[in-house]
């Protein structure tokens, strides 16, 4: 990928800052999301909560469905490829969507290698639980990062853990003398040049969104106050009792994340949130965030 193309791709993510990216499974939901003020939609066959419930192998969605969604909205359209499945990524690039999510929500196709994203013109967003994971994805060519969280649960605890972990590790790196950064980079699996850049910037060098378990306006504002640039909401909208109101409320909460009075106003009378699944009650093998490295 040309350097200029990578920059353009990172810059599209910059234009999404402060916004909400919503999972949608059909044209009707995509239009609801756009009308509510989503900055992009993630087109997929099943939201993570259903993938979790139904089990089996989760793969890239039918391109016909993604194409129909793409034709129904003017906002950017993202879609998921399995970790390491570079042919699914080639197909999504041929479809000319706007962003690929190399996602742990789908069943990984490769347990050793993630996709070499530098070989593509289309941008990628990747999940991360900590600074090392984020840096390795950026080194592979990701133009945007998101926390993994624990998708399909409606429990924000893992997204908070991942964001706090990244913040803590960035503070440690930023505060240490350069000679200690070599050992820190080695211990955390961070490419050294990237470690120096993160140390200098005091943050990730690309846009970083929160994802995984966000279900309420307060969850979205929490992640924004923890320093995220924007949020993904997967199952949290269309698994709630009133998706139209909830989608709009979460958009407002992301914009006014620092204003408790506005957050109060938008949090009222939204109906039932998705019922959810406490991450603490789940067995280790049921957790999706452990996929990838």
């Amino acid at each position: 990928m040309a350097e200029n193309r990578y920059l353009l791709n990172a810059q599209l993510a910059q234009m999404l800052k402060g916004g909400v990216i919503m999972d949608v499974v059909n044209v009707e939901q995509a239009q609801i999301a756009q009308e509510a003020g989503a900055v992009a939609v993630m087109a997929l066959e099943r939201v993570p909560a259903d993938i979790r419930k139904q089990g089996g192998v989760a793969r890239m969605s039918d391109p016909g469905l993604i194409k129909a969604i793409k034709e129904s909205v003017t906002i950017p359209v993202m879609a998921k490829a399995r970790i390491g499945h570079f042919v699914e990524a080639q197909i999504l690039q041929a479809l000319k969507i706007d962003y690929i999510d190399e996602s742990e929500v789908l069943t990984p196709a490769d347990e050793e290698c993630h996709i070499d994203k530098s070989r593509f013109d289309i941008p990628f967003v990747c999940g991360a639980r900590n600074l090392g994971e984020a840096a390795r994805r950026i080194a592979e060519g990701a133009a945007m990062i998101r926390t993994k969280g624990e998708a399909g649960t409606g429990d924000v605890v893992e997204a908070v853990r991942h964001m706090r972990t990244m913040n803590r590790e960035i503070r440690q790196l930023a505060g240490m003398p350069t000679e200690e950064a070599v050992g820190f980079a080695k211990a955390n699996g961070i490419p050294y040049e990237l470690a120096l850049e993160i140390k200098k910037l005091g943050r990730l060098p690309v846009v970083n969104f929160a994802a995984g378990g966000i279900a309420t306006p307060a969850d979205a504002a929490l992640m924004m106050q923890l320093g995220c640039d924007g949020v993904f909401v997967g199952s949290g909208i269309f698994k709630s009792s009133d998706p139209v109101r909830r989608a709009s409320a979460i958009v407002k909460a992301a914009a006014f994340y620092n204003d408790p009075e506005k957050l109060l106003e938008v949090s009222m009378d939204l109906g039932d949130p998705m019922s959810g699944l406490s991450v603490a009650s789940m067995a280790a093998e049921e957790r999706l965030a452990g996929r990838g490295w």
Binding site: A38, I75, V251, A255, K262
Partner: peptide, 14 residues
């Protein structure tokens, strides 16, 4: 710049 549909909703809101 940003997403015009999102911005127009938020402009109207308050």
């Amino acid at each position: 710049g940003g997403e015009s549909t999102c911005l127009s909703r938020l402009l109207r809101l308050f």
